[in-house]
Write a protein that binds this DNA or RNA. Structure first.
Lengths: 145, 145
DNA sequence: GGTTTTACGCGACAATTTCGCAAATTTTCG
DNA sequence: CGAAAATTTGCGAAATTGTCGCGTAAAACC
């Protein structure tokens, strides 16, 4: 993976905001020709710098109107179960993000559900189990960024 | 915003994974003509169902190899400063996600930085201020999802 | 300083998207 | 239930966008 110059950085910056920018739109903002921009973007994709392009969908469409951040603390006396839990969390459709972290907690989840009932069902199904010692639910009131 | 049928749902599902799918690729998987698919996608964009399309960039490219989840607790005696802080957090380039939440904490941040030093600078610049009572840093060891 | 390498812009070509239109399907309403 | 209205489809043409080769210019290397 070769070095990225300021043109590449600018392109990434722009595409990170709007991946549908056209060659000439990029050209205008970057100061290269359309073809040059597209060639660079093509290489950025092939080399894996741009991992993929995704559509951001309004969560209300799927009836997922509620987001919850969950701080999970594990029972550290059962390290064998960790991979199982990992797999389970990755599989759960409600979980849109899941990080293993250091500190007072072990796992931070971002969960999208329709409503409280839905969330409650998720908790019962996934979170209530002996390997999880404690979990703290933080309902998202508003997305600042 | 009209009702979405199964075709729209399938299109969204596909584009959520890969926004660069071409009209005929969509047609093949959805069972409509290329033009019909593209027309529907166009409408989904215009109506805001598809909020935007973004390129996912390998974080290492920008040298941001470290992710931290930060739980922020505010001094609730200064409600006037909330909007200021909001704006400041939204502006900070290190902050990739920022939610206002209920519960034991007030704000949950997702921060991407190069290293500890970088993170420390971020903390000093943004987080160390009278309006913030406390913050808890959870370094991300691994992204499960 | 000359040579090689790399990247650019230009322009032709290919692929993709957009648009108009008639037919088909679905919805509305008497 | 059935006809009129509205919506959506597929097809094909037109427009836009992306890809590629080529000659040239700039940068890197020796």
């Amino acid at each position: 993976m070769a070095e990225l110059d300021k043109f590449d950085h600018r392109l990434l910056e722009l595409l990170q905001e709007n991946a549908r920018l056209t060659g000439s739109a990029l050209a205008q903002q970057v100061g290269l020709s359309s073809a040059a921009c597209l060639r660079r973007v093509q290489r950025l994709r092939e080399s894996g710098v741009i991992e993929r392009d995704i559509a951001v969908i309004n969560p209300r469409v799927f009836g997922k109107r509620m987001t919850v951040v969950v701080l999970v603390t594990l029972n550290n006396d059962r390290p064998d179960r960790y991979n199982l839990l990992r797999a389970e969390l990755a599989k759960a459709p409600e979980v849109v993000q899941c990080d293993h972290v250091t500190g007072a907690h072990d796992i931070v989840l971002r969960v999208k559900v329709a409503d409280m009932e839905d969330y409650s069902a998720f908790v019962d199904r996934v979170l209530v189990q002996p390997y999880i010692k404690r979990y703290e639910s933080l309902a998202v009131l508003g997305v600042i960024k």
